[in-house]
């Protein structure tokens, strides 16, 4: 590339634009859940190795975000919420996003393998593959159930954190995975019920548009019912305990009540109170995930003093 063609660009991407490619808000949830997965495991990890592992998981998640933005640039350009992203707004070239996504994926996976173990690195590889290929390239444009199966990508981080410490997979890490996996659909569909989306214009099938809002309400209650035994069951494993169980029972009752309220409503009710219930349930769903993982962390802290868990 000659200097002239470089100088012709009216805008030069800065570090902030590249950072935005990594979806920092998604990354923060990944860091939190992966950290909990790592800290609640029975095997202690050196703090520096733990720090590097979490960094690798965060960078890997960010890299899959960049790959998603590269692939979905055409969809993003057609939706108001995403039109300002670095690629559709012209701040970052698609090829750059692909390069950054691939390079960071490679760095994160290799470094995680060297710093911790191959299972953790394999799980991170699978997570990136799942989000970039299975969700972004395949499911997202193919089925309104995209969010259900695609949610697995967001559910892997605590499992990776656990694998970093223990080098294995166990019932505890599978249930932490299942908790996020089952939580994603009701959380997302509660949002879809009150946000005016333009997914239809972009050709992305969303349950609210393909099957209607009543069907979406039914899906919310069914997935919430399926979520409850997973969340409560985690309380009876080695990482659970009375504190977790108390939090889980309270939060599940609250979330279930909200899902029930949504199920009983009609479009007229929603219009009348401007989606008050849906907005409330969406907020509860955020507290729900945070409090479950927070309670696991409290149990782990109590165990340090010999008072956590069931023993």
């Amino acid at each position: 590339m000659s200097d002239i063609s470089v100088s012709d660009h009216s805008y030069e991407a800065n570090m902030g634009d590249y950072f935005a490619l990594l979806k920092p808000r998604v990354m923060s949830l990944v860091v939190f859940t992966a950290l909990v997965g790592l800290l609640v495991s029975p095997v202690p990890v050196h703090p520096f190795i733990g720090f590097v592992a979490i960094l690798c998981i965060a960078v890997g998640a960010g890299a899959s975000g960049a790959l998603n933005m590269w692939w979905d640039a055409d969809i993003d350009a057609r939706m108001k919420r995403t039109a300002g992203r670095p690629i559709p707004s012209g701040r970052v070239a698609p090829g750059e996003a692909l390069g950054i996504g691939m390079a960071l994926s490679g760095f994160a996976i290799v470094l995680l393998a060297l710093a911790t173990n191959f299972l953790a690195a394999f799980l991170l590889t699978f997570t990136i593959f799942f989000y970039a290929v299975v969700y972004s390239m395949w499911l997202k444009r193919a089925t309104p159930q995209n969010i259900v199966i695609g949610g697995a990508a967001g559910a892997f981080p605590p499992m990776i954190g656990w694998a970093v410490a223990t080098g294995g997979v166990s019932i505890e890490s599978v249930l932490m995975f299942a908790l996020i996996f089952m939580w994603t659909p009701p959380h997302f569909w509660a949002l879809a019920l009150f946000v005016k989306s333009d997914y239809g214009n972009a050709g992305v099938p969303m349950l609210t548009e393909t099957h209607g809002r009543d069907a979406t309400r039914k899906h919310v209650i069914v997935y919430t019912l399926l979520l409850v035994p997973v969340a409560i069951g985690l309380g009876f494993t080695s990482i659970g305990g009375p504190v977790y169980l108390a939090v889980a029972v309270w939060m599940n009752a609250w979330f279930l009540k909200g899902a029930y309220d949504i199920w009983r409503r009609t479009d007229a009710d929603c219009e009348a109170d401007k989606h008050r219930v849906e907005i409330k349930v969406f907020k509860v769903s955020l507290y729900y995930l945070f409090s479950h993982f927070g309670a696991l962390l409290i149990e782990a802290a109590l165990r340090l003093y010999g008072i956590g868990g069931w023993s």
Partner: peptide, 14 residues
């Protein structure tokens, strides 16, 4: 001397 260096300063430091 090239203005490109000035323009990409932030990126290069980053």
């Amino acid at each position: 001397e090239h203005e490109l260096h000035e323009r990409r300063k932030g990126r290069n430091y980053g």
